[in-house]
Design a protein around this nucleic acid. Structure first.
Length: 89
DNA sequence: CGTATGACGTGCA
DNA sequence: GTGCACGCCATAC
């Protein structure tokens, strides 16, 4: 079995990539879908290091309704979500 | 392996 | 309702 530890990261990216446009998900939700619902911390960390433009990481927000952070600037993230019709706090 | 980091979440004052 | 401290997990070094 070659299953590497980074399997979680790959899973997270896959889940995020499946988020439909105009819709958002939370870090906790992503972590849950990725297999580890307690790894919501790692989810943010993984997305932070992820530089793949195919991953709409800007669609991942916090559970309290806030946009959270973004590699290109939280400001940008909020703008994108707003453009997608997603209202935040 | 141990330490440090972080785009978080929840609980409590 | 607001603010702060602790916990929690995966990655990086």
């Amino acid at each position: 079995m070659k299953g590497k530890s980074a399997n979680f990261q790959r899973r997270v990216l896959a889940v995020v990539a499946k988020i439909p446009r105009g819709q958002v998900s939370t870090y906790k939700e992503i972590a849950r879908r990725a297999g580890n619902r307690l790894a919501y911390r790692a989810v943010g960390n993984i997305l932070k290091k992820n530089h793949d433009p195919k991953i709409p990481c800007h669609r991942v927000i916090r559970s309290d309704g806030m946009a959270g952070g973004y590699n290109r600037g939280a400001r940008r993230k909020i703008e994108i979500l707003k453009k997608d019709g997603v209202l935040l706090k």
